[in-house]
């Protein structure tokens, strides 16, 4: 990592000559919160009791981390270009995304469409429900108390803070994910994208546009 250091890294004593004042901070130096400690304790107990294996926990974390918003972008781009797929996506989200190889089984995927008269935005005021199986882990702001409290109370002000101004003749629909449904916003297809391929369209579909705090990116001219 620090290739400019020529001292021996096999020992951890501090008696050798340092060209930096102290060791760089490590990611695990932070203080863990009560709930983080509770989580670790629970995991260790489950492993100790033989309910789960450490490798299984690791595999699941690895699988979770491999899911990215690019999956959702492909879904939206296909819905933009294939009317039959679009109809299937709105009728049954889980089956439609399964056609593209995305497995979503524990929650019901509900696609909601932005139109010239409606803008959709998603929240979970209770916790942090999010279409994780399709988009991966939610951004930290999505889990923040400020976003969760304010998006239902003053959605237009929050959207403006994200740089998204919704005109007064467009209704804002805030979807509070309070049960087993997970919402995917299908943003409006930007102007000037007629000639683009599906993969080029997918590049315009950002994570935030699928949560509804932004619109899809405009194509480069």
């Amino acid at each position: 990592m620090s290739g400019d250091h020529d001292h021996d890294h096999d020992h951890h004593g501090h008696d050798h000559d340092h060209d930096h004042p102290h060791a760089p901070p490590q990611p695990d130096d932070k203080v863990h919160s009560y709930y983080q400690i509770l989580g670790v304790a629970l995991k260790e107990l489950l492993i100790e009791k033989g309910v789960v294996e450490a490798a299984e926990v690791r595999r699941q974390i690895e699988r979770r981390d491999s899911i990215t918003p690019a999956n959702g972008s492909k879904v939206v781009a296909k819905a933009w270009t294939d009317p039959a797929f679009r109809a299937r996506l709105f009728a049954d989200g889980n089956s439609a995304v399964a056609e593209l190889g995305f497995e979503m089984t524990t929650t019901k995927l509900v696609a909601v469409e932005n139109t010239p008269s409606e803008h959709n935005v998603v929240v979970c005021t209770l916790c942090s429900c999010y279409p994780r199986d399709l988009l991966g882990l939610p951004p930290s702001w999505y889990k923040s108390r400020a976003y969760r409290a304010r998006i239902v109370r003053e959605p237009r002000a929050v959207l403006a803070e994200f740089g998204t101004r919704v005109p007064d003749d467009v209704a804002v629909r805030v979807h509070d994910s309070t049960a087993d449904m997970r919402f995917l916003v299908v943003p409006m297809r930007p102007e000037g994208t007629q000639g683009l391929r599906e993969d080029e369209l997918a590049a315009l579909v950002t994570r935030d546009s699928m949560v509804g705090v932004a619109v899809a990116r405009a194509p480069e001219r």
Binding site: R156, D168, A171, V172, R173, D176
Partner: peptide, 12 residues
């Protein structure tokens, strides 16, 4: 502070 058509939709 917004249009009357604005709404929150929840699963109850």
């Amino acid at each position: 502070n917004g249009p009357a058509r604005d709404a929150v939709e929840a699963d109850i």
